[in-house]
């Protein structure tokens, strides 16, 4: 069953507890973080609105990073986008292709939120969710999370007339459902992130397997054929030698007849 995060940006107060809980719980290197808070401001003094973009993996159902990942290090599981760093070759295609600019290179490999796969798999919650003092974060079955998000939006319409859900449909449906006070652009979040390039499908599902197969077949064929062909060629060579022996000596002074 698909899981999802709920991230209520009308609750988030920018304290960065999630950032550090994630770093500590996942034992990330000191210079690595999966979550980053980015302040946004609209308007001019004193007519301002502002908030934070809680920048982290959106866990797209149709994840571009998974599509472009050549090694399968990035993969979908339980509706979330996992990363097996041991399988990562560090090609950086995910870094380049993510519509949300989430993955970064750390220590030569891709680095991003994997939804605390180990922790959740063992019955816990993602570290960020456990600690969030604002209870802006929740984690659960996606359908329930989505329903909750809709309730939240309905409840805050008075205060935020433009309140909306983000992530129900984007990129095939996100595993990070946002409750936003305003249009996503106000937090620099793309309203409609681009799909994975179509060519990636062709590349991964046709070109790569076909190429791999063709190469293996060619090598195998060449191996078999090579043995036959070499035998033929050796026979030809022997023929020539015998012809030479039988016929007039070449007369080459260096040649020593056996």
């Amino acid at each position: 069953m698909a899981s999802a995060f709920l991230l209520d940006m009308t609750r988030c107060i920018g304290c960065e507890a999630c950032v550090l809980a994630c770093k500590a719980g996942n034992q990330l290197p000191v210079d690595t973080q999966y979550i980053e808070l980015i302040e946004h401001t609209s308007g001019t003094f004193p007519d301002l609105t502002g908030g934070f973009q809680n920048h982290r993996c959106y866990h797209c159902a149709d994840a571009t990073c998974v599509a472009v990942c050549p090694t399968g290090a990035l993969f979908k599981e339980d509706g979330l986008t996992r990363l097996d760093r041991d399988a990562c070759s560090g090609c950086g295609y995910c870094v380049q292709s993510c519509p949300y600019e989430v993955p970064v290179m750390s220590d030569g490999r891709s680095s991003k939120c994997d939804g605390c796969a180990a922790n959740v798999g063992a019955g816990g919650s993602p570290w960020c969710v456990t600690t969030c003092p604002a209870k802006a974060l929740e984690f659960g079955v996606r359908d329930a999370i989505l329903a909750k998000a809709k309730e939240r939006v309905a409840a805050i319409k008075d205060r935020y007339p433009k309140a909306q859900i983000y992530g129900e449909t984007q990129a095939g449906g996100l595993g990070l459902i946002l409750v936003l006070p305003d249009d996503p652009e106000t937090l620099d979040i793309p309203a409609d992130p681009p799909d994975a390039p179509a060519v990636v499908d062709l590349w991964k599902h046709v070109v790569q397997p076909v190429s791999m197969g063709a190469t293996v077949l060619a090598a195998a064929g060449a191996g078999v054929l090579g043995i036959i062909a070499r035998r033929n060629h050796m026979a030809e060579l022997r023929e020539v030698e015998e012809t030479e022996k039988a016929g007039v000596s070449s007369g080459d002074p260096d040649t020593e007849d056996v």
């Binding site: 304290c15 507890a17 770093k23 600690t131 969030c132 003092p133």
Partner: peptide
Amino acid sequence: KLCGRGQA
């Protein structure tokens, strides 16, 4: 719950 500093 705990803040970022506490986590550190």
